[in-house]
Design a protein around this nucleic acid. Sequence first.
DNA 1: GAGAACTATTTGCACAAGCAGGTAAGCCGC
DNA 2: GCGGCTTACCTGCTTGTGCAAATAGTTCTC
Lengths: 155, 155
Amino acid sequence: MGIQDDAAEIRAGGWRTLAALHGLIDSALEKALQAEHRLSVVEYTVLEALSRQDGWHMRMQQLARAAALSSSATTRLVSRLEDRGLLSRYLCADDRRGIYTELTPQGRELLAAARPLHDATLEATLTEAADLPELAPLVRALHDLELIPAAQAKA
Amino acid sequence: MGIQDDAAEIRAGGWRTLAALHGLIDSALEKALQAEHRLSVVEYTVLEALSRQDGWHMRMQQLARAAALSSSATTRLVSRLEDRGLLSRYLCADDRRGIYTELTPQGRELLAAARPLHDATLEATLTEAADLPELAPLVRALHDLELIPAAQAKA
DNA sequence: GAGAACTATTTGCACAAGCAGGTAAGCCGC
DNA sequence: GCGGCTTACCTGCTTGTGCAAATAGTTCTC
């Protein structure tokens, strides 16, 4: 096995670890948010991304990138949330192809209610992962990252 | 904003970064493997996990954990791969509830053909991510992880 | 050693995702 | 200011997923 193979194997191992930790956190958040607030992780992510915007509004495409979704999936996701009264669509004045989405008061309320659970679940899962020898190093590394501006995080 | 909130915000930011990098890699691998070998990432993961087993066989539940899938999804995933002749099922002799899956020669062949593309895509995507200021720290951290034994990686 | 409790796998169903194709709106050169 | 190209969003269709219930086999208890 040459140097090339070693490097590839190291990357593959890192990717397995990353995927494992991601899966652990994702499914824990999914269960918790679904059970308590009937929200999926993507839905929470969208609400959270919206709440972080200056004017609390975003265009569909921005939303799609923030949630790492295709535009068709974004359309339906926004429709679901709109049906539940958590956000509303309205046309851009300047570019009438564009559609803005904006949190409603209920949306902000639900987000405020869900955030503590989200954060607590995240903390609990990270703590749990820190006890697994194969995940612990990545958990430590995550902790030491510089804090990332949210607007860029999912670019 | 108190110390509690700061800690929660750091964890949330780390989670966003982790999710962003995961999404980037996952979709790059998905596209590449799908285009060249009609394999999804999970399917590749399963073949790869099987190839790494001593006797090249695993039970459904092990497979489910290795792929981070529910057991029903695993059933259907194995069925798909079995239909394509990439692996085969056979009953456990000692515990007849259990079902072993085993790579066929074609399965090993396809895996051997797909692995270089997988590894190259992974490398390219990590390189790309290292150029994004918000992902670069995590990429570096990944690189410095200890190599994880594959059998445990997705536990 | 018969029945209860548990485990491994499969199946029915509902739902969310992506892709490809459609429509409406803006932009650009002439 | 009229075609042609591009962009933004929505819809039809197919596929993969999870949950809950069904089935088959094992183990434990008395």
